[in-house]
Simulated scan of single mutants.
Amino acid sequence: MEAIALPQAATLVAALSLAILTPGPAIISAVQTAFAHGRGRALPFALGLATGASLWCLMALFGLALVFRLNPMLFSVLKVFGGLYLLWLARDLWQASTAPLPEAATAPGQGAVRGFLGGIALNLSNPKPALFYATLILSVFPDPLAPAGQAALYGLCLSTELFWYALVAVLRSTAPMRSRYFAARFWIDRACAAAIGLLGILLIVQH
């Protein structure tokens, strides 16, 4: 198959969009970062999240999902490490809920590299998207894709990830949204920490 047909592209984008916006560690962290630190820090973090998620798409295209299926122990080990990483993030967020609020990072580039790399690390901490991408790709594109088609598919997935994560970062970092966050910061941070911690535990214990 040389090209991606429009109906296939629409199906892929719709399914991927629903998966991105379903509450999970990445989208919860993106929202909380936008609330707490403003657009200057949230946008690089969101772009890192999108890049990290798209890497699982790339790995699925290269056959990593097949490796996971052939070696369930490797998948389980990566899930445990990913779950522990989410629990560590949840602990930090829980403790930060009572700490003085840092100033918003509004200057271009302030903390951008660290935020971008943090976003990549967060989305790479969960190997499940590799299986999701593999399943999605096989269901939408049952016939093998040529290299040009694979490149187009990756570009489409990356664009979709970038659009939604950037949109969340921008919308949630507006002044009205942040003022509401400041009024209930303790409870919002604790709720986000609990949700991320629960997802970390589920990542560890689920088979």
Rank of each mutant, 00 (worst) to 15 (best):
F62A: 09
F62P: 00
F62S: 04
G63R: 07
G63K: 04
L64P: 03
A65T: 01
L66S: 04
L66A: 09
V67A: 05
R69C: 02
L70V: 02
L70S: 06
N71V: 05
N71W: 00
N71C: 01
P72E: 02
P72H: 09
P72T: 06
M73F: 09
M73S: 14
M73H: 12
L74C: 12
F75D: 02
F75I: 00
S76T: 12
S76F: 03
V77P: 09
V77Y: 10
V77I: 13
L78M: 14
L78G: 09
K79C: 06
V80I: 15
V80A: 14
V80G: 10
F81I: 15
F81R: 13
F81P: 13
G82V: 11
G83F: 00
L84H: 14
Y85A: 13
L86I: 07
L87A: 01
L87E: 07
W88D: 06
W88F: 14
W88P: 05
W88N: 10
L89C: 14
R91G: 00
R91W: 10
R91V: 06
R91Y: 04
R91D: 06
D92I: 00
D92N: 05
L93Q: 15
L93P: 11
L93F: 04
W94D: 06
W94H: 12
A96V: 08
A96N: 12
A96Y: 11
